[in-house]
């Protein structure tokens, strides 16, 4: 298989398989998780301003008081790499084109140079997060194979995409194919690893927020 065939495979069959497994996994996991049900809370609810599941869904995106100072790397690094990933995925022109092709939705992208810069910053933040995971006793203690694996699976698409655009290491065609392949691996493993938090965090925040909202506590 030459590089163009490889690229065509990842753009064709590979993508089909990856998106298929992704959709399969997401639906299966979401149903598996959210059909477990929960008991109705019979205690008379108390109401308070700013306390609801929806409030918590949004509020949890901000660091609680004092926490930024306690764990600056987690918050700042986390913000940078999450926002960076979102910018790259949703505002990079070739990525928008893919989304448009798959969903019909379209919006303007950002200049390549800017995306380049965001990519470098994102990678730097991810490396810092990795170092933090290695250095920080709590993170190291909690880390399992899955944590290292998912870091790599998330990092690789960013790295290969950047290398491809910068024409580094391998010819563009091969690197582009590797980039798409790595993104497909990410899609495939997402529903079955902690990366699934991209979906469940909304449910989790909502559960937490609404349960505490019944007590009148905005969390």
């Amino acid at each position: 298989m030459n590089d163009l065939q490889f690229l065509t495979w990842v753009r064709g069959t590979g993508l089909d398989i990856a998106v298929g497994i992704f959709l399969l996994g997401v639906l299966w996991r979401l149903i598996e998780i959210y059909t477990l049900g929960r008991k109705k809370d019979l205690a008379a609810p108390r109401h308070a301003a700013g306390a609801s599941g929806l409030h918590t869904v949004f509020r949890r995106s901000l660091p609680p008081p004092g926490m930024l100072k306690r764990s600056p790397v987690s918050y700042i690094g986390g913000y940078i790499f999450h926002i960076g990933l979102a910018v790259i995925v949703f505002l990079g022109a070739p990525h928008i084109l893919l989304i448009t092709n798959l969903t019909g939705l379209s919006w303007p992208g950002l200049p390549t140079q800017f995306i380049d810069l965001v990519t470098v910053v994102t990678m730097a933040a991810m490396v810092v997060m990795l170092v933090d995971r290695i250095n920080k006793p709590v993170k190291r203690f909690l880390s399992t194979f899955e944590d290292w694996f998912t870091w790599a699976v998330t990092f690789l698409p960013v790295l290969t995409g950047w290398l491809a655009v910068q024409h580094l290491l391998l010819p563009y065609t091969t690197m582009l194919a590797l980039h798409i392949l790595s993104a497909e691996i990410l899609l495939v493993v997402l529903p079955f690893t902690k990366l699934f938090h991209a979906f469940t965090l909304f449910g989790s925040r909502w559960y937490n927020g609404s349960a505490n909202a019944r007590k009148g506590v905005p969390v």
Partner: peptide
Amino acid sequence: VIDAPIASYFDSCVHCGLCAEA
């Protein structure tokens, strides 16, 4: 006792360790 919130919570955890700080 395991219910949907618990399932959702476990599947959301990213081992960030911030809970330790609290």
